[in-house]
Design a protein around this nucleic acid. Structure first.
Lengths: 128, 128
DNA sequence: TTAACCGTATTATAATACTAATACAGTTTC
DNA sequence: GAAACTGTATTAGTATTATAATACGGTTAA
């Protein structure tokens, strides 16, 4: 059963997008693997405190991308091949890193300063 | 006169937020300094191809944060003290880096891998 | 002073995101 | 087969984002 305990909803970003991203990142990390069972729409909506329609929207997107297998009446399961897993991992990493690099450059930050900032933050959060 | 040539609007994020962020990053980088003149609402809206109301919303936010000085009938000017500049820089850097670190950790990426990814991307974009 | 600019405000319209309340049909289990 | 689930669809209402079309009054320079 896929766990959503690690998902902390942030204001300002569409909820369905956050759910999709959470699942994709889990797949990239290997914490969500092929065949894993998804909680039902109703259970998940109660768990996250959002509307069932919002959950359904996220699930529909995941299914359209071939990452979720849903059939009316039956439970839903993760569907990820090793190839898909690698592709998702690469795409997400590239996107996140590119966003940061562009932001840093716009602020006139040097590469060394950026690396220092990240390593420091990494250590800092490990203590918490 | 503050230049907005470097601002590339992205779909999915509110335009007024992108404008506010662009100005703040310019202030953090030192490319926008205290007293710099802002293009008029109408000129800027034509330049970016967005509605004047959207520009006005961004300007209202910047003024409420004390970063823009506007008076009816007169032109608008950037208003940044050295203390504000440092504060903005620190806030934005922290926010961006924190977002990346959380994403990386969710995907099971090591600190070394993250640093490598960023340094590579930095070099790669410098060639372009 | 008057014309041309400036910031500001208002009203209306449309698209998207999200909530809310149902309803329906397929699957599973006892 | 019936009850309890499951995914799916529909309709309605609200808030935010953005556009559109004006309008008003202050500032500035010819």
């Amino acid at each position: 059963m896929i766990s959503f305990e690690g998902l902390i909803l942030t204001a300002g970003v569409p909820i369905y997008q956050q759910i999709v991203l959470y699942v994709k990142r889990g797949m990239a990390a290997g914490t969500i693997v092929d065949g894993d069972e998804l909680p039902s729409r109703r259970v998940l909506s109660a768990l996250l405190g959002v509307n069932p329609n919002t959950i359904q929207k996220a699930c529909r997107i995941l299914e359209e991308e071939g990452l979720l297998c849903s059939h009316a009446g039956a439970k839903s399961y993760a569907s990820v091949s090793p190839r898909q897993m690698e592709q998702i991992r690469r795409q997400l990493l590239q996107a996140d890193a590119r966003t940061l690099v562009e932001a840093m450059k716009q602020m006139g930050v040097t590469r060394e300063e950026a690396v220092t900032l990240i390593t420091d933050l990494w250590k800092g959060e490990e203590e918490v």
